[in-house]
Amino acid sequence: MKELEKYNIILASGSPRRQQFLKDLDIPFEIKLKSVDEDFPNHLNKEEIPEYLAKLKADAYDDLNENDIIITGDTIVWHKGRALNKAEHENEAYEMISSLQNSWHQVISAFCIKSKDKIIVKSDFTDVFFEELEEDDIWYYIRNYKPYDKAGAYGIQEWIGQIGISKIKGSYFNVMGLPTHLFYKTLKAFIKK
């Protein structure tokens, strides 16, 4: 996008997947990280959670220049009325993945685009079905892939996704952490206004 050349795009995300998405979209960017407490109010549900967290991360950047655009994101897995964020240890990862077997869950990814004078937050949903998994396979995945930086303790693009996920409804890239189709369209509209 030639029109992006006059902007300084800042990706405020340590996620290797979001960084790769921006590279793949041919969007020039730099990475700047600030530590943000990612707690959210208990009354939030579904997309309210990642949208709140994406905005919270963007709000940490209150010193933007005229041509700066900050991009943040957050992803949750929503299953049986609760959010599964990142697992802190292998037992929690095992519990999360085990709970997802033989059922559908929703992956909700939100992003926030912020400049000096405006801000927009959007999210997208993808339904994912996990087949029944053998206990040994779950432990193999956790111990070899250490999925502690991923919502729901799994990556669809990794080994567990290849052996366990049989159906999805919606964007595959959204499950990886960014609804690229929606993000690209939103970013183009954001810089034109």
Rank of each mutant, 00 (worst) to 15 (best):
E95K: 14
E92M: 14
I69L: 02
I70F: 01
K32H: 13
L56V: 03
I49A: 07
K32W: 10
I10T: 05
P50R: 12
A60S: 15
V107A: 05
D68S: 02
A60L: 07
L64N: 02
H43F: 13
E48Q: 15
P16D: 10
D63H: 13
L33G: 08
H89T: 01
E66C: 00
S98M: 10
P28K: 15
E66H: 08
S35C: 08
F40P: 07
I69M: 01
V77A: 08
L11M: 06
G81F: 04
D74P: 01
L100R: 07
K32E: 15
A93L: 05
R82V: 11
P28R: 14
F21D: 03
D59C: 02
N102I: 06
L44S: 10
L84T: 00
F29M: 07
V36S: 09
Q19M: 13
N85L: 15
Y94A: 05
Y7T: 01
E95W: 00
L64Q: 07
I76M: 08
N85P: 00
D59V: 00
L44C: 09
N67E: 12
S35T: 14
N45S: 13
N8C: 08
G14V: 10
S13V: 06
P16F: 09
T72V: 04
I76G: 00
A58C: 06
W78P: 00
I70E: 01
L84I: 07
A87D: 04
N67F: 01
S13L: 08
H105N: 14
H79D: 08
S99I: 09
A58V: 02
Q101V: 06
S98V: 06
L84C: 03
Q19L: 11
I49C: 08
R17D: 07
S98Y: 11
E48I: 12
S15C: 05
Q20H: 10
L44Y: 10
K80N: 15
D59W: 00
F21T: 06
N91W: 05
A83D: 06
R18M: 08
N67K: 14
N8M: 02
Q101E: 15
G73Y: 04
A54K: 04
H105F: 12
D26Y: 12
S35I: 13
I76A: 00
R18Q: 08
R17Q: 13
I31R: 11
D68V: 02
A87W: 03
